[in-house]
């Protein structure tokens, strides 16, 4: 399973990246979170918002959510 946070490198994107790392750690998933700043990857998914949390290349969360619980829910729901 590949967990990625894609963003344009803005402060909000970084916040989502940190939240996601925290969520993955608390869920004990044992995977790394990748931070992707190539915006073209976001557009390739058909999305136009930043940041995006993607699991195995599929968007799980679009736009910033300031809540670890929501991030965890999004990850659990999208685990293949």
């Amino acid at each position: 399973m590949i967990i990625q946070v894609l963003g344009s490198g803005c402060p909000t994107c970084e916040k989502l990246f940190n939240l996601t790392k925290q969520a993955v750690e608390e869920l004990k998933l044992g995977t790394e979170v990748e931070y992707v700043t190539d915006v073209r990857k976001i557009v390739a998914m058909g999305l136009m918002q930043s940041p995006v949390l993607a699991i195995d290349g599929k968007p799980a969360l679009v736009g910033f959510v300031p809540d670890v619980k929501k991030v965890k829910e999004a990850i659990i729901k999208n685990i293949p």
Binding site: G7, S8, C10, T12, C13, V39, R40, I42, V43, L47, M48, Q49, S50, P51, F64
Partner: peptide, 10 residues
């Protein structure tokens, strides 16, 4: 949000 300016534009 200015974060989304680029993906929106593209």
């Amino acid at each position: 949000c200015s974060c989304s300016a680029i993906p929106l534009f593209l």
